[in-house]
Computed example of a mutant assay.
Amino acid sequence: MDSLIEAWNTAPQMAKVHPTSLELSRVLVSLHKRSNPKVTALAKKAGIRL
């Protein structure tokens, strides 16, 4: 998750469209959507509905 956050901070345009980034974000959200505020913030950046 730390690497994904770093990717969003470094290159948000790339993280938003990269397939691996999107899939990892979806998996994290599906597993931890309410238990982790970092995941919630990533979901909002990626445009994933909770």
Rank of each mutant, 00 (worst) to 15 (best):
G47P: 15
N36G: 02
K44F: 13
V27S: 13
E6C: 06
R26Q: 10
R34K: 10
A15R: 13
E23V: 03
M1H: 12
A7L: 02
L28P: 00
E23K: 09
A41D: 03
L22T: 01
K44N: 13
K38E: 13
K45E: 09
L24Y: 00
S21L: 14
A15G: 03
M1F: 07
R49C: 06
L42I: 06
P19L: 12
S3A: 05
S3H: 03
E6T: 01
R34H: 07
M14G: 07
T40Y: 08
K38F: 15
L22E: 12
H32P: 05
N9P: 02
E6W: 02
A7I: 00
S35H: 12
H32F: 02
Q13W: 07
D2V: 03
P37Q: 08
P12C: 00
K45N: 14
V29R: 14
E6G: 00
H18S: 10
A7K: 07
A15Y: 04
P19V: 11
K16Q: 08
T40K: 04
V27Y: 13
L28V: 04
D2W: 09
I48G: 08
P37S: 12
P12S: 06
V39N: 10
L42G: 11
L24A: 07
G47A: 14
N9W: 05
S3C: 13
P37E: 09
L4I: 12
L24H: 04
L31S: 07
S30E: 04
L22C: 02
P12G: 01
N36E: 08
P19S: 15
K33H: 12
Q13M: 13
I5L: 14
